[in-house]
Nucleic acid binder design. Structure first.
Lengths: 186, 186
DNA sequence: GTCTATAAATAGATAGAC
DNA sequence: GTCTATCTATTTATAGAC
C-alpha cells in the first residue's frame, strides 16, 4: 500500500467518525504517524482525499449495475445480484461507504457534478429493472419511486447495521435480505 | 415564535445543508439577520442548539411508540401507526429529522447519552412489536434484527425522499409505504 | 437585546531546511 | 519524503458600550 492509499484509507475511518469538516489534517496526520505538512507530498488538498474516496466507490457501484442491467435474466435475479453487491461492499468497505453516504455534500465543483451524475445513473438503471419487473408481473404494480427508495434506503444503511449485528452468517444474511426486500415480512 | 425558537428552526435548516461542524455561528446569525454575538443572548452555546433540536424530536418518537406499544391491537396495526407517525414527522419536520439522523454523532456528554438511550428505547419497543407479530404468525419468521433494520432504514430516509417526489398524495403514499414495508414488492 | 471589538484556539496550506 | 516554522483565515465565545 502506497502512502497515498494509506492516507485515503485512514481518512475514510476518521471521516466516518468525525465527519469531513470535523476531521483536521493534523488529526489525520497524527493517526498515520507523520506531521500535517507531509500529507501534502502525496495529496494536493483535503478536498482531493474526499473526492478520490467517494468517486472510486461510486464508480464501482455504477459499473456493477450497468453490467447486471445488460444480462439476460429476470428482474428478480438482477435485483438479487444488486443486493449481493451492496452486501459485499458493505462488508469490505464499511468506512468508505459511510463517507459516500453521509459526506458527499461536502464535495465541490467537478467532483460534486461527477458524483451526482454517477448516482443518478445508478438510480436510473435500478428504476428500469424495477419497471421491467412490473410489466413482467414479477413485481407488484406499486409506485416505482417508492420501491426504488425503499430498496436503496435499506441497502445504503447496510454498512451501519452489519457492524452491530455480525452474528448472522453472510450467506444467510444475503438470503434473508433478499426475502425481506423482495417478498415482504408478513 | 420566540427568538430562541427562531434560532433553532433556522439552525435546523442550515445544519441540514452544511452539517453541524460546517455551519458557523456567523452564518447562522446572518441568516437570521443579527450579529453572531447576539445569538448568545438566547442560547448558551452552539452545542445547545444541536442538543435541543435533536432531543426534542427524539422525545417525540419515543413517547409515540410507547403509546402505540400499550394499545390492544395487532402487530400489523401497531406497525401501521408507527409508519404513519414517521411519515407525519417527515412531512412537518424534514430538516430536524435530517439533523437527528446525520448529526447526532456531534452531540457531547449528557446529551449524547440521552439521545442514545432514547434511540435504544425506541428500537426496543419496535423489536418487541415485531417479535410479538412473529409468535402471532402475523409476520414471517425472519431475523428480527433484519426486519427492524430494514424498516428503520426506510423510515429514517423518508424525509430525504419526500422532498424529491411529492407528486404522490399523502394518503396514497401512506398506504403504499405500508404495503411495501409489510407485504413486499413481489 | 444588539452591537463593536477582541480574545484564544484552530483550520488548510506553503516555504524551505535536511 | 518528512520536518519545523509560519502565513492567513476562520472558529466559538466573551466583555462591555449603547
Amino acid at each position: 500500500m502506497t502512502r497515498k492509499e494509506e492516507i485515503i484509507k485512514v481518512a475514510a475511518e476518521l471521516i466516518r467518525e468525525k465527519g469531513y469538516v470535523g476531521l483536521s489534517m493534523r488529526d489525520l496526520a497524527k493517526a498515520i504517524g507523520v506531521k500535517a505538512a507531509s500529507l501534502y507530498n502525496h495529496i494536493p488538498s483535503k478536498q482531493a482525499i474526499l473526492s478520490e474516496l467517494i468517486l472510486q466507490l461510486a464508480e464501482d457501484f455504477t459499473s456493477q449495475i450497468q453490467g447486471v442491467a445488460k444480462e439476460d435474466s429476470s428482474s428478480l435475479d438482477k435485483l438479487k445480484k444488486i443486493v449481493e453487491h451492496h452486501l459485499g461492499l458493505s462488508l469490505h468497505y464499511p468506512n468508505e461507504l459511510a463517507v459516500l453516504n453521509n459526506e458527499w455534500t461536502h464535495l465541490n465543483g467537478e467532483a460534486l457534478q461527477d458524483f451526482k451524475f454517477k448516482r443518478s445513473q445508478y438510480e436510473e438503471e435500478l428504476r428500469q429493472i424495477i419497471n421491467y419487473g412490473k410489466t413482467n408481473n414479477e413485481l407488484k404494480p406499486l409506485h416505482t419511486e417508492l420501491v426504488l427508495f425503499s430498496m436503496l434506503s435499506t441497502l445504503r444503511n447496510l454498512n451501519l447495521w452489519i457492524k452491530k449485528r455480525s452474528s448472522i452468517p453472510a450467506e444467510q444474511l444475503k438470503n434473508e435480505l433478499v426475502e425481506v426486500l423482495l417478498k415482504g415480512i408478513s
